[in-house]
Amino acid sequence: MAATCFLFVAMGTGLVTGPLSLSPSAVALELLSKVPLLHVRSPLSPTDALVVWQLRLPEVVLGALVGAVLAVSGAAYQGVFLNPLADPYLLGVASGAGLGATVAIVSGSGTSSPFSLLPAAAFVGGVLAVAATFVLSRSRQGRSNASLLLAGVAVAAFFTAAQTFLQQQHSGLDLQVIYTWILGSVSTAGWSQVLLLLPYACLSCGTLLAGRRLLDTMSLGEEEAASVGLSVRHARAVVIVAATLGTAGAVAVSGLIGFVGIIVPHAVRLLAGPSYRRIVPLSLLYGAGFLVLADVLARSVLSPQVLPLGVVTAFLGAPFFLVVLRRSQRVG
């Protein structure tokens, strides 16, 4: 309940914050004017109304979707790997998507729309990187969490190297575009980005919400989980696929936004205890609200300049992360 309120307050704040000063009541009336049968007249000019409907609202919704996906995926990864430091980028999504984005920008430079292929390329890159990690992690003893993590490190290093090589080969204007993308942003124009992410966000969050009991059961370890009827390998694959699709979709439309996947689930753990039955749904709501608020900060701190969203989340996230780390050391 508190989490839902938090999300709505965050989204409301997002809607009334921007370089153009539109009063909260005017924005509210504008929103209500689109509700049929209410016959509310909007006080906003047509351009201001466009700003609300085509810039701010989609940005707030995109921020909420990205935040929800990252937080839920982060919680899921922490559950699967029984590791509090796991984040959604653990298995190489970020580096793969980075390479995909770089390829799209580099190969599209000079054409009329170097940006339009970026989401697709980033998504495919991210998914391929995780698939590569999964294949490479298989050793003679099967696939353990440790081998998955190590393969993830190797794949990330390889994809990052390839990305750096391409960037170095195509310096100039491309660099700035890649750089901007890497730093993360949920700035959007109209609803197309939201529509791109929506199916993956629903699939990913839906699966992880429904399967949150898998995460609790997995904490029994492979053998006891099997004895209550859960194949850890199978569940791990389900969770990783779901989290990867969501994360790759989020990365594709918003670049790399660090720390949301770590700090939100941990904050929720402190609030609501260790069971994923509660962590997953609460992470969804708080993650969405947190990213919307971070975006408000990014847009307003140095307005009209917009700070990269990844910078804001890391700036808030790093100190918080250290606190969590100290706490867990004291307890452990």
Binding site: S113, S116, L117, P119, A120, F123, V124, V127, L128, V130, A131, F134, V135, S192, L196, P199, Y200, A237, V241, T244, L245, A248, G249, A252
Partner: peptide
Amino acid sequence: LLTTLTGVACAAATVLTVPA
């Protein structure tokens, strides 16, 4: 898993390219 991932990736590429 791989088939699923690849399939989804291809489908996604198609979907994501349309607005482009």
